[in-house]
Design a protein around this nucleic acid. Structure first.
Lengths: 342, 342
DNA sequence: CTGAAAGCGCTAACAT
DNA sequence: ATGTTAGCGCTTTCAG
């Protein structure tokens, strides 16, 4: 069943049928109805390939992301899908698992498939992939800091500011030795931001600031094992900061198993603020990252870029979302704030 | 840049270039190398549409799912993507949010796009969508019970068996009044299974069994509000069973806020067994659902079906994964079992 | 082993 | 307002 057959059955030419689908107003209501009726009756839909071949647009975007199973990423994905869906775009996604080759292959595949644009989440893999002779010449927005990807449009959380505020808060509470538990594949930017904040505070602490960092999977297991390791090494700090909530929850468990009281003997704070943070005991102080919003923002930026391809004024821009610090119980010493659902 | 240009540059015909990509063995190694070199140099990739137009295959599958943000679904998605990615297939996904129309539209879109197959997650929407004149005549696997969708291949958890075991366990512990807190859009099958199990146990309890069910969002908020409501109604049961872990966690919080001790005054069990279950306090008894595995299984079934389209022996089949019951602290009375990571 | 040429189904000038 | 027709870029017989 193709446009030709439909044309015959409706007693018109293929051009008319085509018009019915693409410029309905340019065809007599009467004939339009007739064509539509036949279309309906035979349950016909225009061939996507033939259409794409002439039109050159796919109404499809690609989303490339380190992982799907993650409090942060699942929200980004959902945000992107929501905006894209409303625009009638389909979204193809692929997870890289932090693997350079997987990323390169996926990007290449998407290029072949002529997607209209790409949203790329993550850190520095991208740049090299792009070097690697891929030359994606299509709209691209990067979720992450601008220095981690050679492209024009970026959006991300202001992790620098967030880390600064978090550390400020911790220092106010008197904590001086801090350690970071983070996932190397996912939390690179957070790690950088924490180190930046540390540097910023260093002068005013007379060298009393002490910092370590530990690599761990973004999972409860990762956090659990990290604390075990830290205890074994006898290098317990005042505060543990984690790149993700799951790690913090694992640490909570490990602390319980080791009869280590939180926050009395160890303070704990995390990035992300997923719903569990407010609900575990002690409730976790965490940096809220509105990930769904980030995904939606990225998608909107991409569609702007797709729709205004003409004005490819070579200006690059960066949209920065401000995270909020949610202070709860796990760092101690403040009046107990229970922020359940906000 | 197209196959024609490449042909000219390599001093061969378009047919030869095409062969290099599709039947490399049917072309002299020497010429092949030459063509490949030019291809590389000009960073050429065959046009996807033109290719699809003649070949008729997209190497793309669609995944339609109620939501992305969900412990269960994110794992299914990840499982599907993993298998598809390994096979060189792209996956397009869409979330329905339990909305019939969204589902219908997405399905229609996917049909137009001539995806090679569809994986559909969810309950009964599908059937009607399919009636609605869509007639998806393509490989389709449904994740869910066979009676919730008119298609040939199904795979799902054995929620009946799981509910039966869970209720058996609860009854052994002496609990007689049970209430279910579930999300209407996502947990329909679980609700059915719980009711089935209840019926099965009814005879041997001399009418002492008491059951209620409450609809709540699959979120900590949903759970929190549900328990608040139940307390206000003065209808506290012995046990609360939740369709998802997040609800259970919200209930944990609400119980704490109401000075209700778990498991002493209220037992609590959930479906899903996400990582937090073992880590909250008290640790949650939960039914483990290996969702990533389910996703992978569904994808494999789909590819089987795609690759063996010829033997469309009209037999339908159903693959059932057995969940495991993870007994922890939240239902009380057993020797304290800490199953941290298994 | 390689080349020439006929489509695949659709869209958009260009005619009428 | 509608029809005619020339491609879009590729694959694949069919010849050579």
């Amino acid at each position: 069943m193709n446009i030709q057959k439909i044309a015959e059955l409706a007693g018109v030419s293929v051009a008319t049928v085509s018009r019915v689908f693409n410029h309905p107003d340019k065809v007599l209501p009467e004939t339009r109805e007739r064509v539509l009726a036949v279309t309906e009756e035979h349950n016909f839909t225009p061939n996507w390939f033939a259409r794409g071949l002439t039109i050159g647009t796919t109404k499809t975007i690609a989303l490339i992301i380190p992982a799907i199973v993650s409090d942060l990423y699942q929200n980004i994905i959902s945000g992107v899908e929501t905006v894209a869906g409303n625009k009638g775009y389909a979204v193809i996604f692929g997870q890289t698992r932090g693997d350079r080759e997987a990323e390169y292959n996926f990007l290449k595949l998407m290029k072949e498939r002529k997607v209209d644009g790409i949203i790329h989440v993550g850190t520095l893999l991208m740049r090299e992939s792009n070097d690697q002779s891929l030359s994606l010449d299509m709209p691209l927005v990067h979720i992450g800091k601008s220095d981690s990807c050679d492209c024009k449009i970026h959006c991300h959380f202001d992790t620098d500011e967030a880390a600064h505020r978090l550390l400020g808060h911790l220092m106010e509470l008197g904590h001086r030795s801090m350690s970071l538990v983070y996932d190397k594949k996912q939390d690179k930017e957070i790690a950088e931001s924490v180190e930046n904040a540390l540097k910023a505070f260093a002068p005013q602490t007379a060298g009393k600031l002490c910092f370590n960092s530990y690599v761990a999977d973004d999972s409860t297991e990762g956090g659990y094992l990290a604390l075990q390791r830290i205890i074994k090494q006898n290098s317990l700090p005042d505060v543990l900061i984690t790149g993700g909530d799951l790690q913090a929850i694992g640490i909570l468990k490990a602390a319980r198993d080791n009869k280590l009281r939180i926050p009395q003997e160890l303070a704990l704070a995390s990035f992300n603020d997923s719903p569990v943070c407010s609900v575990v005991s002690p409730a976790l102080t965490s940096v809220e990252m509105p990930a769904a919003k980030l995904g939606m923002t990225a998608a909107r930026l991409l569609f702007d870029s797709i729709e205004n391809e003409d004005d490819d004024s070579d200006y690059s821009h960066e949209l920065i979302l401000q995270p909020k610090l949610k202070i709860r119980e796990s760092c101690g010493n403040t009046s107990d704030i229970f922020e359940l659902f906000d």
